[in-house]
């Protein structure tokens, strides 16, 4: 069997942004933790994300010491670890979903599990599984060279984060070094739906980034409603939602959890339409 040369992960992420843009929308990027609340539900939920309205999905590799995450995602990771979810399981869940037509998929992972797995081996596994790249929140610009060296030759996406504390010039450097899109952290602190996004500072930052590059910008942290998504899509190119999605199916498993997640993403999707 011959196939056309596959698009790189980076190109597939770019395409997702372009497609939404052409339709007058921003992208919606749900975050799910592999293996939460259990493996089967997690796989079914991931499969439901595309039809529900997700343009890109982030699948978390559960980690026991998630420094950048608040209680919701930390607890989801702990449930997944208690259920025995490994990095291989997370990759397999993503691979299966991608095979069945899931939107472009990124892994979300802390650095240490990837270091132990091996950077080159991880990058190879992403390519082999049809995964577009990874977001690694505890690797700032200063430490990113090793990851880039593994990701760049394979065309993998490597979105880096810009925070409210990031000075403008540094934000421009980070945006230039990001592959796929730049992740704008909406506010101080860690992931959690209990404190909403702070859009006040972002508009300025987006404007200054736009002067240097047209590369996509997505906003995450604290996004929990269609109104938040609408604000993010008005200012930037998309919204990332994690804790609020996990909160939405709290305490549920199986079809009930999948239905709830699907409904929640469907609701948020209404916010992606640009009304300008």
């Amino acid at each position: 069997m011959t196939t056309a040369p596959a698009m790189t992960g980076k190109a597939r992420i770019a395409e997702a942004f372009a497609r939404a843009h052409a339709a007058g929308r921003g992208v919606l990027v749900p975050y799910l933790c592999a293996g939460d609340p259990d493996r089967e539900t997690s796989a079914a939920m991931l499969a439901a994300m595309g039809p529900a309205g997700a343009d890109i999905v982030e699948l978390g590799i559960p980690y026991g010491d998630p420094l950048a995450d608040g209680p919701t995602i930390a607890a989801a990771a702990q449930r997944a670890l208690d259920g025995g979810t490994t990095i291989d399981d997370a990759l397999a869940i993503a691979e299966e979903a991608v095979k069945n037509g899931a939107p472009p998929t990124l892994m979300f992972t802390y650095y240490n599990p990837v270091l132990q797995f091996g950077l080159e081996r991880f990058a190879d596994a992403l390519v082999a599984s049809g995964i577009c790249g990874a977001i690694v929140p505890d690797v700032p610009l200063e430490e990113v060279d090793d990851l880039r060296a593994a990701f760049a030759p394979r065309g993998l996406a490597l979105p880096l984060l810009v925070a409210p504390t990031t000075p403008t010039e540094r934000a421009q450097t980070i945006a230039a070094a990001s592959e796929g899109f730049t992740y704008l952290v909406s506010r101080l602190g860690v992931t959690s739906a209990s404190t909403g996004p702070d859009f006040a500072w972002i508009a300025d930052r987006v404007a200054s980034l736009r002067t240097k590059s047209a590369a996509p910008l997505a906003i995450g942290f604290g996004i929990s409603s269609a109104a938040h998504v609408a604000a993010a899509c008005a200012i930037a190119d998309g919204a990332i939602v994690g804790s609020a999605l996990i909160d939405a199916y709290a305490g549920m498993v199986g079809a009930e959890a999948v239905d709830r997640a699907r409904a929640f993403i469907g609701e948020l999707h209404t916010g992606t339409v640009r009304t300008r």
Binding site: Y111, D138, L141, E143, V162, T166, V190
Partner: peptide
């Protein structure tokens, strides 16, 4: 090294 989220780098 400095393996921290971007928000703490500054």
């Amino acid at each position: 090294g400095k393996f921290v989220p971007e928000v703490l780098v500054g």
